[in-house]
Amino acid sequence: MHPILQQRLGRSAQYGMLLIVLVMLAFPIYYMVITSLKPPGEAYRLPPTLWPLNPTVDGYPFVMRAWNYLRTLLNTVLVAGGAAAGATLLGGLAAYGFSRMTFVGKSALYSALVATVAIPGMVTLGPVFIAYNELGLLDTHIGLILIFMSDGIPFAFLTLFAYFRSIPRELDEAAWIDGAGLFSTLFRIIFPIAMPAFAVTFLLLFIAGWNEFLYAFTLTVTPETRLLTVRLFEIPVRADANTTPYDLIAAGGVLILLPLIPLLVRVQKQLVQGILAGAVKG
């Protein structure tokens, strides 16, 4: 076969494969979106349809009322945002210390920090639940923020550690010679330079907090403190219905996923460029 023809065929095959993969990856999400747009009758129709015959958004207000959506959204933003900001700041400070300074017990502390990643959340959750119960932290947002923060610290630390190591030490030294103290060096030189890495770290931790279920479910009790993902377990039911309300579940799913889309667009470039891999390889 002619090489150019062969190359063209190869290209077409690649596009074909890519298309199949993307359809498989996207189909469940597409199906969630169209199901959420179906009127109740159509949602249970047999056989199911691949697009809504009579699209409607009536399901959304129903779910939003049932979930007290705005309040829950605010809770989620507060907890995920607070925890992500805290973990990014503390992880960043520690990363700077480890990337630039020598101190007694450095490698032991590094190992301790990184090795805790191997402890499953389920293992720590039990004692935390008991302790929260006794300390009055159960069902509070501050309790959730603290445990989310602790969960995010290793990731923030490793990402920012890798980033700080790529910033030449000479910049710190130039700042000292220019008369900056250690805090000025940190907050006027190093952190501003690392701003892009801080932003991505924050957003990834925010997404992780947004999606967290186990802690959020176990450590909250009342509807007022609950976060979005946990609401998926509270399927809203129409008064007259006796079948599973697919359309309402799907609408709830869209309401949870949709706010993350702008964030995904924002971090997509850095993700593809491998900020994650660099971080973990360190």
Partner: peptide, 28 residues
């Protein structure tokens, strides 16, 4: 010197992380 400063900036992260991992682990 930088040594004490190092602990000042690394310990918040480490203390929080260990409080939520090693302490519950020991209790478990």
């Amino acid at each position: 010197g930088p040594n004490s400063f190092a602990y000042l900036i690394i310990l918040p992260a480490i203390v929080l992380r260990l409080t939520y991992s090693i302490v519950p682990l020991v209790q478990t």
